[in-house]
């Protein structure tokens, strides 16, 4: 049911953990399915220089979290904001249809983290 890439990111997730001194933190959850996702970012000169995640959820939830951290690392905030759920699913060689909406939340979590950063640093103008 899951692609090899999903299984790889699920079994060996990249950039797992909490970031105590994060510049921005985003948390999203889906009460129906119960997945909970937290993304931490470090930002320097408008570029994401470090990113970590914590996720409570199914295989797809963990794999999409891991994938978004790889996609966002080194990107400018504008580039990162442009990442969508579909980009994440595509990079993972697809997700089961039932998981597309409930567990594919990582792009939302990243966006929330960037917004959090922007709110804390009001002088930033995209």
């Amino acid at each position: 049911m899951y692609s090899e890439k999903v299984m790889d990111h699920f079994m060996n997730p990249r950039n797992v953990g909490e970031m105590k001194d994060a510049d921005g933190v985003g948390e999203v959850g889906n009460p129906t399915c119960g997945d909970l996702m937290k993304i931490f970012i470090k930002v320097e000169n408008g570029i994401i220089t470090d990113i970590k995640f914590q996720t409570f959820g199914c295989g797809a939830a963990i794999a999409t979290s891991s994938m978004i951290t790889e996609l966002a690392m080194g990107k400018t905030l504008d580039e990162a904001l442009a990442l969508t759920r579909d980009d994440v699913a595509e990079e993972l060689d697809g997700l089961p249809p039932i998981k597309m909406h409930c567990s594919n939340l990582s792009a939302d979590a990243l966006r929330a983290a960037i917004k959090d950063y922007q709110n804390k640093h009001l002088n930033y103008r995209p």
């Binding site: 299984m7 699920f10 119960g34 997945d35 409570f56 199914c58 939830a61 409930c102």
Partner: peptide, 26 residues
Amino acid sequence: SYIEGEALLLNLDMMGIIASTGSACS
């Protein structure tokens, strides 16, 4: 507590252990 059953099941499956869960995600 703190974890989800489908993720648990898939990990166990990779280790050759077959089980079942009542989690919504599965």
